[in-house]
Computed example of a mutant assay.
Amino acid sequence: MTWLRAQVVDGARDLLPPLHQATVKRITTHGMVIRGTETIARSGNAKSRTNQHPQTWWVMVWTGQAIDDMEGEDPLDELADRKAARKVLHIRSENRR
């Protein structure tokens, strides 16, 4: 298996900590899902021990078609609706006890 390193950069500066041992898990019409491990030093010392955290990124590629498909849509609205629905379902299940 080939491991990749995924980065989000602005010029030479990382905007997010890179993902090590990254693999592309899924490719869709407008993007892809990448999984890997984020490695963070416990202190500023380059030789310090590290904490490793599994991460999953969903990368959306903003093509002209994607923009047309998403026109008028706000993904944050959908996430808020899902959270509200889960909260209502949770309250209902607690009331049944």
Rank of each mutant, 00 (worst) to 15 (best):
T2Q: 08
I67C: 11
R97W: 04
K87Y: 05
Q55V: 12
P75W: 05
V59N: 06
R96G: 01
V24F: 03
R35N: 13
A84M: 02
H20Y: 13
I34C: 07
L79D: 02
A84G: 02
A41S: 15
G64P: 11
R97Q: 01
W62K: 11
L16R: 07
A66R: 03
A80K: 07
L76Y: 06
D69Y: 03
T63N: 07
H30P: 09
G72V: 01
Q55K: 15
R42K: 13
S48G: 07
V8S: 05
T28C: 12
K47L: 13
S48M: 04
G31N: 04
R49C: 05
R92F: 04
K83E: 10
K83A: 12
A84Q: 13
I34Q: 03
I91F: 08
D74N: 07
H20A: 09
V88F: 00
R49G: 09
V33Q: 11
W58A: 14
T23D: 13
D68A: 12
H90P: 01
H53S: 15
P18V: 00
R5F: 06
H53W: 13
T37H: 12
D10C: 07
K83W: 10
V9Q: 13
Q55W: 11
D81S: 03
P17Y: 04
M70V: 02
T56I: 04
E78M: 00
T29R: 15
L16E: 12
L19M: 08
L76I: 06
R92P: 01
A46V: 15
S43K: 09
R42G: 09
G36K: 04
I27R: 15
R86D: 11
V88P: 01
H53R: 15
Q55D: 09
D77E: 06
I91G: 02
K47A: 13
T23Y: 09
R82A: 08
V9S: 09
V33G: 01
R49S: 11
H90F: 10
P18K: 00
E73L: 15
Q55G: 07
K25F: 13
A80I: 08
R42C: 11
T56N: 08
E73I: 11
G64M: 04
A84N: 06
D68S: 10
H30E: 05
M1R: 03
A85W: 07
K87C: 04
K25L: 14
T39Q: 08
A6E: 01
I91A: 08
R92L: 12
L76V: 03
K87S: 11
Q52I: 09
R97D: 00
A80T: 06
P18F: 03
E94P: 05
D68I: 05
R13E: 08
R5S: 03
M32D: 01
D69L: 01
S48W: 05
L15Q: 08
P18D: 02
T2Y: 05
R35A: 14
